[in-house]
């Protein structure tokens, strides 16, 4: 393995973890997913084309492994899984409320169909352009556009439908 390849891989790890966390809905599953993606990338590093985006290549590997997992077993997490990971009993009430509001967003994300969730994470969280996201998912740009719109509308509707969601999500935004 070239040191440069390893450096590139380490550089992109934080974003891969974030992407994987959004897909899997669990911190532990996300890290397992990223670890599997690293191992696959190293085994196939000869397939990476210099001059193309390394992060997009890695996102594609992560999403491929995740789709394989989704197909082979139901990996959907129970609601509140991450909240339990993160909530501390000594947090001030306002922070707890904000945290709960963000957990509501996370649950809304988990309820989206996998293809919409992927489009949302790649574009809205990771900042890829529609074209770049389409290359990662290997679908036409128009498909990404419509998946994204459906995902954004569904997310918004779910937040509006949540108990007191509007008030508490505003608190979260103010944190």
């Amino acid at each position: 393995m070239s040191a440069r390849f390893g450096d590139q891989l380490i550089a992109v790890l934080p974003r891969l973890r974030r992407f994987a966390r959004g897909l899997s809905g669990s911190i532990a599953d996300a890290d397992d997913l990223v670890q599997a993606a690293c191992e696959r990338a190293l085994a196939r590093q000869h397939q990476f084309q210099e001059g193309t985006r390394f992060d997009s290549w890695m996102f594609r590997i992560v999403q491929t492994i995740w789709i394989d997992q989704v197909r082979s077993r139901d990996v959907r997490k129970e609601d509140g899984d991450i909240a339990e990971d993160r909530l501390g009993s000594d947090e001030p009430a306002r922070r707890v409320e904000a945290r709960l509001a963000l957990d509501e967003v996370r649950r809304a994300l988990d309820r989206l169909p996998p293809d919409q969730r992927m489009a949302l994470l790649l574009v809205t969280v990771e900042g890829l352009s529609y074209k770049e996201a389409a290359e990662v998912v290997q679908v036409p740009v128009g498909t990404i556009m419509s998946r994204l719109a459906r995902a954004r509308i569904a997310l918004q509707l779910q937040l509006e439908a949540g108990n007191g969601g509007r008030r508490s999500t505003k608190n979260a935004a103010a944190q």
Partner: peptide
């Protein structure tokens, strides 16, 4: 809602990397 989605994942990017992932990379 897009802003809230950013907030949900804002912390993840700042977390120290687990050693096992660095080793894997």
């Amino acid at each position: 809602s897009a802003h809230l989605l950013h907030l949900v994942f804002a912390e993840a990017i700042h977390e120290p990397l687990p050693e096992r992932l660095i080793a894997a990379a």
